[in-house]
């Protein structure tokens, strides 16, 4: 595989739970609990999991939008978690984020031009005229009429806003984009437009994607490799084809079988998981999945499964796989 762009090791983010008048810390929500992976240059790593699995927290911790509790994040060999404020600010040019909600992620009082110029102003890049021409070319690149530059976000549809969000992330010519559910809030017919746009941009600008989503079909479509998270921990990591054709972890299997297929004649063996996701404040002992696992054995209740390479490039954390 190509050179590593970013490598995450043992990343943890524990949010303290405070209780009572004295606000004593009575426990921690282990939102992200020891996650590690590497993403190669130009690669797309899909991160899937259900709500509460820590995928969004992980994405934001990598960018230090949330300060992680421990671990390292190496970007081109440099650990960014101990960078100074000024160095981190410079580093932010290299890595950007696109958010899920195209309504909340654009400042309603900024015109499109202002939204897109802001990164250049913050980093003191270019003069005014160059900035404006860059805004126009970015708008054109993401498929919007450059004449829309002076309009406000509320004049656009969800899909158009998401294009603006993507253009903003591209303004500084980053190498890495963290895409946090970028199409989840969009209409079906618009989703595919944005997915195609993301693919094209990746080819054109040699971008590396960390694609966070809950929709498995979308992740399958866009990713080279896929990481499955459960309760803040890694369940399985492999290239897309192996994960979808030969999942090893029982959770991945259940997840895949739960996806409704838009074909009335395909009837699959469905694994219906019992119960709900346990609280990340109080994760089960042993394997975090054992409470819902259809094949759990005694060892699963006692020991945390090791992260191991079951097949070439196919990692899993399960005693039984």
């Amino acid at each position: 595989m190509s050179d590593t762009l970013i490598e995450v090791r043992e990343l943890r983010k524990h949010f303290p739970i405070r209780r009572g008048v004295l606000q004593r810390v009575t426990g921690h929500v282990r939102a992200v609990d020891g996650v590690g992976f590497r993403v190669g240059k130009g690669e797309t790593l899909g991160v899937v999991g259900e709500s509460g699995c820590g995928k969004s927290t992980m994405g934001r911790s990598i960018l230090r939008l949330i300060e992680p509790t421990s671990g390292t994040v190496e970007f081109q060999g440099k650990n960014i978690l101990n960078l100074s404020k000024a160095d981190m600010q410079l580093m932010r040019r290299q890595m950007q984020i696109v958010f899920q909600d195209p309504y909340a992620s654009l400042n309603p009082r900024f015109t499109v031009a202002k939204t897109l110029m802001e990164p250049m102003i913050v980093h003191k890049l270019h003069d005014k005229a160059t900035r404006m021409s860059r805004v126009k070319s970015l708008l054109e690149r993401v498929g919007l009429d450059p004449d829309y530059a002076e309009r406000f976000p509320h004049e656009f549809s969800g899909g158009q806003r998401q294009r603006i969000g993507i253009a903003r992330a591209l303004t500084l010519n980053p190498k890495l984009l963290i895409l946090d559910e970028p199409v989840a809030a969009l209409d079906v017919s618009v989703q595919s437009q944005v997915l195609n746009l993301l693919k094209d941009l990746q080819d054109e600008f040699a971008l590396t994607y960390l694609f966070i989503a809950h929709d498995l079909s979308v992740v399958r479509h866009i990713s080279d490799r896929v990481l499955v998270l459960y309760l803040g921990r890694m369940a399985e990591l492999a290239d897309t084809d192996s994960i979808f054709s030969d999942p090893l972890h029982p959770y991945t299997k259940a997840l895949l079988s739960a996806v409704p297929i838009p074909d009335p004649d395909v009837r699959r063996e469905r694994i219906i998981l019992k119960g709900d996701l346990p609280s990340p404040a109080n994760p089960p002992k042993g394997c975090p999945f054992h409470t819902r696992c259809p094949v759990a054995a005694q060892i699963c209740r006692e020991q945390v499964p090791e992260w191991r390479e079951a097949k070439q490039g196919h990692f899993v954390a399960c005693h039984l796989a």
């Binding site: 595919s192 437009q193 997915l195």
Partner: peptide, 16 residues
């Protein structure tokens, strides 16, 4: 236009 969970992965054909 919708991505599928099975079959070949090819470029999506969106409704413009």
């Amino acid at each position: 236009s919708i991505p599928k969970i099975t079959g070949e992965r090819k470029r999506l054909q969106p409704i413009e």
